[in-house]
Amino acid sequence: MAKKKANNHLLLHTALISFTLLSMYPVFWVLALAFSGQQSVGIIDLPMDPTLMERARAIVPIPEHFSVANFVGVWTEQSFGTWLWNSAVVSLMTTVLGVFLACTAAYAFSRFRFPGRNAGMLTFLVSQMFPGTLMLIPLFIIIVKWLGLGNTYFGLVIVYATTAIPFCVWMLKGYFDTIPVDIEESARIDGASPQTIFFRIILPLATPAIAITALFSFMTAWNEFILASIFMEAESNYTAPVGLRFFVGGFSSQWGYFAAGSVIVSLPVVLLFLYLQKYLISGLTAGSVK
């Protein structure tokens, strides 16, 4: 019995390792291009009539010459630093605003029974089905033409924060539902005001869900490029996604800069994601499982 189990695990490990390597390949590929110091889309330059070995070499994601020239170039020759800064400011502001709005609304939906509660929850859900293309032109008219917030951080921030609200509210509400009401009631008997209960008791207890909400709001803003490319006209106001697409979109093919930029842009989100992943499962499932 014990021996059979060990064998099974060997099989599982082989399967898992090969799948993991396969799924990691695109990541290695980007890293290879980023550190290759050149701009082409191939890992090495193949001769006209390559042999089998040369072809195999072209697949292995290790650059021919190791160089950080792409990283240096993307900072010095391109305005990538500015774009990254724009993205950082917009994303952080979105996170703060989005989390605040989602927490308060989710708390009300979870704890109070009031007329319009169900309708409110339902409209939040339905709004997830609104196609982005339907909203683009009206949003452009409202933000740029009426409010005059084109080319500003704030215009993007309010749009991103409200876009993220419905998902965050549903998730947080599910989590708030799991916090026993008794805690609040005993605090109320001890004379705590509603604000104190919300800020001092509920929010600290909901840290995992709030962490996920924050991550989600941050990623909404950090990864969005269509609205950003429509609202931000001046090149100095581009966000990082708009800028990265600029490297390989249309007729330009600066794959080296793109790869280096991608590594820089992905690093913070990937780290955040991995750091918060212990909350990921509890945060996501709390909303759906009653």
């Binding site: 609304a105 009300a108 939906f109 109070f112």
Partner: peptide, 24 residues
């Protein structure tokens, strides 16, 4: 109390989600 908590999010949604939707 409940409406006070819901209002900020609802206001944002009205102006930047539902209104653009209807406009569209």
């Amino acid at each position: 109390d409940a409406y006070a908590y819901v209002t900020p999010a609802m206001l944002g949604m009205l102006v930047l989600v539902f209104f653009p939707f209807l406009y569209g």
